[in-house]
Amino acid sequence: MASSASRFDDGTFVGFARRHVFVTVFGVAVPLLVFACFIGYPIVYTIYLSFFEWNGMAPQKKFVGFANYAYLLHDKYFYIALVNNAKWLVVSLVFPVSLGFLIAYVMKARLVFAPSLLRTIVFFPVTMSLIAVGLMFLLILNPVFGAFDTLLRSVGLGFLVHEWFGDYRIALYTLAVISGWAFTGMPMIFYFAGLGDVPKETFDAARIEGAGHWRMIRSVALPQLRPVTAIIVMLTLFESLRAFDLIAVLTKGAPFGMTNVLGYLVYMESFWNSRFGYGAALSVVILVIAGSLAALLLGKVLKGAFDV
């Protein structure tokens, strides 16, 4: 790691700050201050609120200790949402992330004609707001006049037609796949860029040993791309825990709460059911899950991927 300025440092923050006023002010103090106002305070407040009962309107909040957390432990909706989040994460890792990698590899290896066109097409939905994406798929997957069912029937796959948003067994997967559709471009360009950085010699060496594409991917590309994977997996994890927009536009948790995820449940409980304390407790749970999964990922699986 770069540490060219460290020759003056005595290892303490005060010592550092004296010698590097500019960096301390604009690189540490200002961002931390802004962070404290707009991100730190909300987090602290959320933790505080999770010990209260509050309808969002009353001037007083009622202190209830750990009651919100106790309720959470046997709230069926919480577990449905938690499991749904896990499913969502798995779908996101399998579909957009793996597919994104595959497309990037195939293009980088010049295995297809017109690779940049494909790249552009797949990346485009990344720029669409999820409201737009949701509206689009509401039209396309509609059971009465939706184009997708018409298409399936016309190519003889009518047996595959389902109520994409109405069938409680598949609605969540429909949502996760739509979100994957909109997200695939992201891992794709990250991997594409990462592949461009793998030293030529590494691939040359593998080629001389007679490696095919499968071995190239497994023993050269993937290990070399660990830092990229680390970023993508982290972003995917955070995104899936925050999943909200699509559910708000497409199902609002219906049918009967089976498409609730934690992010949407927070919103439902706070703003719809006027239980801001409980909503805050759910938020704290999301933060704890996100934080510990991120720490686990960085500490074990992806160790050293982002040394600071």
Partner: peptide
């Protein structure tokens, strides 16, 4: 009813209609 109650009620009826409850 307050939204919290009606929300669960509606979930329940929807679940019944879907044959899941």
């Amino acid at each position: 009813t307050p939204p919290a109650i009606s929300d669960k009620f509606l979930d329940g009826v929807q679940g019944v209609l879907a044959g899941a409850m």
